[in-house]
């Protein structure tokens, strides 16, 4: 069994009016079956409101499924006895850099998770130092988080999750509020954790360029998995992605338009280097 496995997973948000009567039900996640192998880099794409964040929160047991099951490293997330183990195993980085930093100093924030786990004091320090070093934020350990850039804040948050020694990290739109520079910092860190530390990464985003290095991409729409495959496979279907309110990387779009204009260009071009090679072959 994979590190994260879902079976017929579903989640419903129930809206109630002032008297407490049910006024509407939104199926945010609907019949999702995914199986993630340890060490994989998974990207989940989808427009706003497609259910991708709800799915992420279920993996971390912040939300418990309305239907079906989700297993994290073999543990059922709905099992109350395993709750803290699930959260320790599958850490989570959220969208807003300001709203997830608890400590008043960088190092204190990174130490927050280990403190909650009851790790002995000397080991907390070891973990904090090690995690901050991995995120190249060690020199900022005595700084106030308020003075850092968005990308740096997100790296502090990642370090905070790392210090809990998770097997898997879920990134819930970690770059949505960052500038291009900050986006690069965060994606580079996520890739490094996957490459070097072999941590399973689940990256939720709507920036196409961030997903081209993933092993697999899931595209969500209306709570369901609408597309699945390697970046090449997914980005070959430009029209379908556009139907789902998503774009494709610019190089892919240029290639697609060229092909439509009659040029012999293969499907699934992901970046400008590949486009150059394809053009070289036909020009």
């Amino acid at each position: 069994m994979g590190i994260i496995k879902t079976e017929k997973l579903g989640y419903e948000y129930i809206r109630r009016d002032d008297e407490g009567n049910v006024s509407g039900i939104t199926r945010a996640v609907d019949d999702v079956n995914i199986d993630v192998e340890p060490g994989e880099f998974i990207a989940i794409l989808g427009h706003n409101g497609s259910g991708k964040s709800t799915l992420a929160k279920q993996i971390n047991a912040i939300l418990t499924p309305s239907e079906g099951e989700i297993y994290v490293d073999g543990m059922n997330s709905a099992d109350p006895d395993k709750l803290w183990d699930v959260r320790q195993c599958a850490g989570m980085v959220f969208q807003n850099p300001d709203n997830q930093i608890i400590g008043q100093l960088v190092e204190e924030d990174v130490g927050f998770g280990p403190e909650n786990l009851g790790v002995p004091t000397p080991e907390i320090w070891e973990r904090v130092t090690e995690s901050l070093r991995m995120m190249q934020m060690l020199e900022y350990s005595k700084h106030s988080p308020n003075k850092l850039s968005g990308g740096q804040k997100q790296r502090v948050s990642i370090a905070g999750v790392l210090a809990m020694h998770p097997k898997c990290i879920i990134f819930d739109e970690p770059t949505a509020m960052l500038d291009p520079h900050g986006r690069k910092e965060v994606i580079r860190s996520a890739r490094a954790l996957n490459d070097v530390e072999k941590i399973t990464i689940i990256l939720i985003t709507h920036y196409m360029e961030e997903t081209i290095y993933a092993d697999r991409i899931f595209v969500m729409d209306k709570g369901r998995i609408a597309m699945e495959g390697t970046p090449k496979e997914v980005f070959s279907q430009v029209e379908k992605l556009q139907e789902l309110r998503l774009g494709v990387p610019q190089a892919t779009l240029v290639a697609h338009r060229l092909k439509a204009a009659g040029l012999p260009i293969p499907d699934g071009i992901l970046n400008r280097q590949e486009l150059r090679e394809a053009l070289k072959a036909c020009l």
Partner: peptide, 17 residues
């Protein structure tokens, strides 16, 4: 810390080749 539009990079790559 600014990047050109991706399209401009594509055209520059072609020109360089």
């Amino acid at each position: 810390g600014l990047a050109l539009p991706e399209v401009t990079y594509i055209m520059r790559t072609l020109k360089r080749n």
